[in-house]
Design a binder for these strands. Structure first.
Length: 501
RNA sequence: UCCUCGGUAGCUCAGUGGUAGAGCAUUCGGCUGUUAACCGAAAUGUCGUAGGUUCAAAUCCUACCCGGGGAGCCA
């Protein structure tokens, strides 16, 4: 091993120099006397060319026998080449095979989700996962920097708790020295205690929900960031959430260009999400659901999906017509495209089945109900950036929410809904600060008063106006990446029926 | 828990009652600038499991198992 090796991401600083790279073989293309090795080292990809005429026999043999994901070490001359991945190419002068990989299960071809999830420990090495998880890192750093720069202290809430916070969600129960304990579903109540001690804090940790949700927006174990601030009202909290999300987006755009490029992310919606998030009251949101404009939007969407489906059918028929005379590589292209067409068509079919139901549920929406997933989606269609919905009927909100002094039917809650159909990424609001009210609410929600004794103390000793919210890390990363499913945004996803690997 | 789609080679899939298929991966051969490289050849199967219908089942029926998507609930 040489101590002077260079990261692929740093090749730009070594143009014209000889460097040593260490990593794994990502892909190999060969012709007589020549191997094109695409190497990865975690920081990036680089094509390394081994020319039989320019290396010794042992280096040539190493290149000959290296299989996909074999670990390798090589030395070579760095040269700029616009056409190559990463913009640089390495002309190899020496190569050493560290470990010859067995036949690698993940080939440079398509794979199904189940197979990839079963090989998650290896799937992490793929380029798309590289991009997504590096963006996750960027989002995490943005959050820490944002809060630290504003004087927030990072504090940890306990993961093991004795009771449910909101009483609604299902908790993971475990045996705890002869009694029951639960994995936390929110650090908020403890966050409030820490805010009363330190002013402004945020927790950053794992959260567990035993809900039997099998959707692209749910994990049983996910990471939540929960700021909690003394002397904050609802408006200040909405402003804070907007500035935080804006910071996350702006950092990702600045620092993750290559990653977003790999994901083929449309940057325009992100650029629009840098400021001016509309504030939409629950009342206004209900009006939107009932509006003629929403009806028109859904009908237009149905029309455009129908014409897209027709176009795809035509394209598929053309593909089949030319298939007979096509060359082998053309056939393969047609096959790949046909697969895409079929997937898109089944998506369209599902949307066409759903949209009339969505419209019906929106038009019949009754004041006082909580928004369903489809209602949220329809509301966000009216805007081109994240929106903040606020002041909900208290009926479906948590017991600790403060009532709106101007309308007792409402709670001072707020949700941030991400655009492009990504939905709720933040939920929070102003907390009730009156002891009597809170005790009353705990009773009304049928919660065990004993468990909340310490929480009531926060309203006994210097109670102040305060507020906070929870940000779902994986949902946020999913939105920034513009990907379909949040299971790719965490290294090892835990879902309803997946604990492996 | 409910609705819906699926399970065929290591992987992705085609095959709707009559001898089990293609591409990729693997192995071998060819090619000195490839970009999911290409060209040629070889090898690869408990058709999810159990039962049933039939001269004959991957294909039809029943039950079960596993997975995807969605609903409810939520970040």
């Amino acid at each position: 091993m040489t101590p002077d090796h260079v990261d692929i991401s740093a090749l730009k600083n070594h143009e014209g120099q000889s460097v040593t790279l260490r990593g794994w073989l990502y892909n190999k293309r060969s012709s007589k006397g020549l191997h094109f090795l695409v190497m990865r080292d975690g920081t990036g990809l680089s094509q390394c060319v081994v020319n039989q005429g320019e290396v010794d026999e042992s280096s040539w043999q190493a290149a000959e026998s290296a299989t996909q994901e074999s670990s390798i070490e090589l030395k070579g001359l760095v040269r700029a080449d616009e056409k190559q991945v990463g913009g640089y190419e390495v002309q190899v002068t020496e190569m050493n095979l560290i470990h010859q990989a067995e036949e690698y299960p993940i080939t440079p071809k398509e794979h199904g989700v189940d197979f990839l999830m079963n090989h998650r420990h290896l799937w992490l090495r793929s380029r798309r996962q590289w991009a997504i998880l590096r963006i996750r890192n960027s989002v995490i750093m943005s959050i820490h920097n944002f809060f630290q720069e504003r004087g927030f202290l990072q504090m940890d809430a306990p993961i093991l708790t004795g009771t449910a916070v909101e009483g609604t969600s299902t908790l993971f129960e475990m045996e705890y020295f002869g009694r029951s304990a639960y994995l936390t579903q929110s650090g908020q109540l403890h966050g409030e205690a820490m805010a009363m001690a330190f002013g402004k804090i945020y927790t950053f940790g794992p959260t567990f929900r035993a809900e039997k949700s099998k959707t692209r927006r749910h994990l049983t174990e996910f990471w939540m960031i929960e700021p909690e601030m003394a002397f904050y009202d609802l408006e200040m909290t909405m402003q804070l959430a907007e500035e935080m999300l804006s910071r996350i987006v702006s950092d990702a755009l600045a620092n993750c260009q290559a990653e977003l490029e790999v994901l083929d992310r449309d940057l325009e919606p992100l650029k629009r999400s840098l400021s001016d998030y509309p504030r939409v009251s629950y009342d206004e949101a209900v009006e939107i659901l009932h509006s003629e404009k929403t009806r028109k939007m859904v009908e237009d969407k149905i029309e455009s999906l129908k014409s897209e489906a027709t176009a795809l059918t035509t394209e598929s028929a053309e593909g089949k017509a030319t298939y007979g005379q096509a060359k082998k590589w053309q056939k393969r292209k047609i096959d790949v495209r046909e697969g895409e067409i079929q997937r898109r068509q089944s998506e369209i079919e599902e949307e066409l089945r759903n949209l009339p139901k969505w419209l019906k549920s929106a038009q019949e929406f009754e004041w006082g109900n909580d928004f369903g997933g489809s209602d949220e989606t329809l509301i966000t269609w009216h805007y081109d950036r994240p929106i903040i919905v606020h002041r909900f009927p208290h009926g479906f909100k948590a017991f600790y929410m403060k009532r709106d002094p101007e309308d007792d039917r409402l709670a001072l809650g707020m949700d941030v809904l991400a655009p492009e159909g990504y939905g709720e990424i933040v939920g929070g609001g102003e907390r009730a600060d009156d002891l009597g009210f809170l005790q009353d609410q705990v009773k009304k929600h049928g919660l065990p008063e004993e468990a909340f004794k310490w929480y009531f103390d926060l309203r006994r000793y210097g109670s102040v106006q305060h507020a906070g919210y929870g940000l779902g890390l994986e949902r946020t990363v999913t939105w920034i990446c513009g990907i379909h499913h949040l299971r790719e945004t965490i290294p090892f996803a835990r879902t309803l029926d997946r604990l492996y690997p």
